[in-house]
Design a protein around this nucleic acid. Structure first.
Lengths: 304, 304
DNA sequence: TATTATTAATGAATATTATTCATAGGTATG
DNA sequence: CATACCTATGAATAATATTCATTAATAATA
């Protein structure tokens, strides 16, 4: 018999186009999903997915179920928001401090949706840079910090968002374009174009260049698009999340290269005080954020 | 985590107003439902139901979930109809033969809904009386017979619908009104008002009066309301399903009395040929019919 | 008012079912 | 042609839902 678990699987399947990726998304094994799919197909006497070589494709029946799933899961979320409202603790503030510049891109639409769902909650972005953002939480200057730290600290909870890859971005005519993978040494004589944040905040420098003793020149820009313009016009190399540059790469405005053999990856967490973590609107924010990210950002991977 | 099973339980709970009755409806034990409810309440940190003496009441949270359930289950049914259409076998005929006169009352709205959901299926009522309605199926004169027989016959499947009680209906001033329960002997000198069908088709006669050797006078009428008019004007007693007369009893137009200590009950089945039974639109018809009946008719009980 | 019949809640035992593990076979890629 | 992916599958295991047995509470009945 059909259960919500199946619907959740279906959407994951639809969004990832692969059983194993979908499995990661719903925190199960590939085998579990395979069995689920099998059961559904037997139950309805219809194929739900179809192997397309390496990946899979949803059949007509599968797509119909995905559309069902979309509606149903959304209705459930709305209902659960109402339940949260019934149980009170529904008003409060959600001031978000962003450690990661590019996160603006995906955060905006989520914030818009959130404002609609939780009109009673005061939603804000905390601007400016903060050397110790976690301290902000403790001092009450913010309610959530979105960043990549996961330092264990009592009273603080780090909610995993996702893992993403940071790629080097070069002009299509750049001398290094021939290399499939860039190593630390390749950055010796280049100018690095970054957001205007301290060095410790830039993963490429902290995790790759500094350990290798390399200190390239830096030039900063506020906006992602500005950074890409500088890159395209040969002023230097940038290191940006794969999902932030996809459309530019697809249009050959710039090219992207992996950094190091297994790539440079970064994990994103939403950190809150323990007490904030239990607030229903915060939980809803996290669920929505994760869903939206997995639905829109390509190439990201779920975290434990 | 919320699953469809919980939603199905919730609606049953809502429609029956009792955990044990709801349990029967979804073919589980009372204990199972009690555990489900507990789990939900823990999960949402909210009470879902509230004891009101003997029976229960849904809390605000519970009602919200019921409304969710309604929407969701309906969407699922629509989706499953679409799946059936995808898998073909979607057209055909559904000619219904009615053994039970009163069934018109609940069947009509169901047929209307069915026509909308399955425009390709030819839907009809087979009129007239048939001494052996099952024969109709075998001869291809009908696709479903709704009646109370459950004679085992190869190639025929009997799908249980529900069990209902047949009550004696009297005028409020009738001499027998003082008795809580009527026995066979009470019918000795009364006129029985029935639909114009053979005696073998009238449960009261077949199961109660004939075994007791009592043969009361009969007078017939085509419509339920006509029968009730005759009863109200003291022309005799009728025996009708409890759900068919409820509103008349509530308005004191007539009074209803149980027949025999444990009541006179009748089971309703929808019988089809084995091959017809597997058609998706037939399955959908059965599910819809059962749901609609349990939602509208009071005092009916699920069958195995 | 005592008695009986119902009804719901609960903990422990059981049955069922989902999930994982281990593995095999298929398909791209270099 | 080897390697790295992917999916499918049967058996073993883990998880969980359900039942069983019992208690407490409430309503109906004598």
């Amino acid at each position: 018999m059909l259960e919500l678990r199946h619907l959740r699987t279906l959407t994951a399947l639809h969004e990832t186009g692969s059983v194993s990726r979908a499995a990661k998304r719903v925190h199960l094994t590939q085998s579990a999903l395979s069995h689920q799919i099998k059961a559904l197909q037997v139950h309805y006497g219809l194929p739900i997915i179809q192997r397309r070589g390496q990946s899979i494709e949803l059949t007509e029946a599968g797509k119909r179920l995905v559309s069902l799933s979309g509606k149903v899961l959304e209705e459930i979320q709305t209902a659960e928001r109402d339940l949260a409202r019934i149980s009170q603790q529904t008003s409060g503030s959600l001031r978000i401090a962003l450690e990661c510049h590019t996160c603006f891109d995906w955060l905006m639409p989520i914030m818009d949706a959130f404002r609609q769902h939780w009109p009673e909650v005061e939603l804000d972005l905390v601007s400016g840079f903060h050397s110790d953002p976690i301290k902000l939480l403790e001092e009450g200057g913010a309610d959530v910090v979105i960043g990549s730290e996961r330092e264990r600290r009592r009273g603080i909870v780090h909610h995993p968002l996702f893992r993403f890859e940071i790629l080097a971005v070069l002009a299509p005519e750049h001398a290094l374009r021939g290399k499939r993978i860039l190593q630390a040494a390749d950055f010796t004589d280049v100018t690095l174009i970054t957001y205007p944040v301290p060095e410790e905040r830039i993963d490429l420098i902290r995790k790759v260049l500094k350990p290798a003793g390399i200190h390239p020149q830096r030039r900063t820009a506020e906006l992602t698009i500005a950074i890409l313009q500088l890159v395209a016009s040969q002023r230097g190399i940038a290191a940006l999340p794969s999902w932030g540059i996809k459309s530019y790469v697809d249009h050959d405005y710039v090219v992207a290269r992996r950094i190091g053999a297994s790539g440079l990856w970064s994990d994103l967490y939403a950190s809150t005080l323990k007490e904030t973590a239990s607030r229903p609107y915060l939980r809803d924010f996290l669920i929505t954020a994760r869903n939206a990210c997995f639905a829109t950002l390509e190439g990201i991977v779920p975290l434990a």
